[in-house]
Design a protein around this nucleic acid. Sequence first.
DNA 1: TGGGAAGTGTCAGTCACTGTCGTCAAGTAG
DNA 2: CTACTTGACGACAGTGACTGACACTTCCCA
Lengths: 186, 186
Amino acid sequence: MPRSGAAARARLREAALELYRERGYDATTTAEIAARAGVTERTYFRHFADKREVLFDGETELRDVMVGAIASASDEVSALSLVLGAYTAAIPLFVAGRPTAERRAGLIATTPALRERAQSKSATLTEALIQALVERRVAEPAARLAAGAGAVVFEYASRAWDGTTATGLAALITRATDELHALTTP
Amino acid sequence: MPRSGAAARARLREAALELYRERGYDATTTAEIAARAGVTERTYFRHFADKREVLFDGETELRDVMVGAIASASDEVSALSLVLGAYTAAIPLFVAGRPTAERRAGLIATTPALRERAQSKSATLTEALIQALVERRVAEPAARLAAGAGAVVFEYASRAWDGTTATGLAALITRATDELHALTTP
DNA sequence: TGGGAAGTGTCAGTCACTGTCGTCAAGTAG
DNA sequence: CTACTTGACGACAGTGACTGACACTTCCCA
């Protein structure tokens, strides 16, 4: 293998996060990001598809872990359990990524273009989970409902999470599921 | 009042939908849309914020109807009932918009940029419903869970809908809620 | 030691989107 | 009927995101 390019990619990630936070997303250009990372603008676009994508690197790893969790789960569990198990399996990734996630959170929340991309990412993730469920012979409509419900439950649980212990988040997930169950009871 | 501009806006909507379907979203320029509508590119951007937004005109009307349904609902109903009632109140809009919605559906599904915008729109709608619930003294965390669950339920129901009768969709919504209840039962 | 794969720089070009200014249509007040 | 106001529109220049093509370099492997 020739030059890896991983170092430049990491510098681009860090440079973009810094600049977006310093001057705001709209006020920074991709050329400035590239300059701070010591590369050309053209190289930026070889690593990231567009101006937003640089903030969402590593999503494929998350997806692989969760899809793998569904594929390798034991039989005889409900569709929702598979989905929630996938989110639980991903908790270590969330704990590890907490420091940078915190720096990104406010930025994404206050920038419409980035919020849009974040929503798209989680929708794509849900779609991947549906696909994984279907490959486990779960009927597609049921898979969609389970994956959607799992996403809502996880988002609800992670909002109440203090970000420290993995077991804390796991407990919040089961509690959120109970609340959803209660909510749908007539 | 001077010239209304509503006619030009409608022509732009129709021209964009036609061109996007004929040549694809990426292969059509905003200048071409404007030309077919008989206006300037600059006028296009006075009516629509960007190249995608032209396909999502009329979302504010949907939001107003649903928020209004929550605000004017009778007391003593659960948060989820409020949300599902809002979707039910919007069914006539879905029935009326069916013809154009069908032309947009395939286009949006096959164009990543448009899918992203569509997801963003439904997320914004969910956010508006949360706000409406909070103004009815529903606690914010519970409001988020109810609005999220309602969105999942509605999306699940509308997928199974044949698009003809309003009562059919209403029945599918209650059935989807039952299935979600069953799904969360341990 | 040569050769090929992958990363990068350079340059030209397209197109989405914006600021600004002048003009014109359509109401309204006098 | 005239003058004035209010928005919609056209014309034009400009910025910046993103792409295609080509040349060059670096590193690994045969």
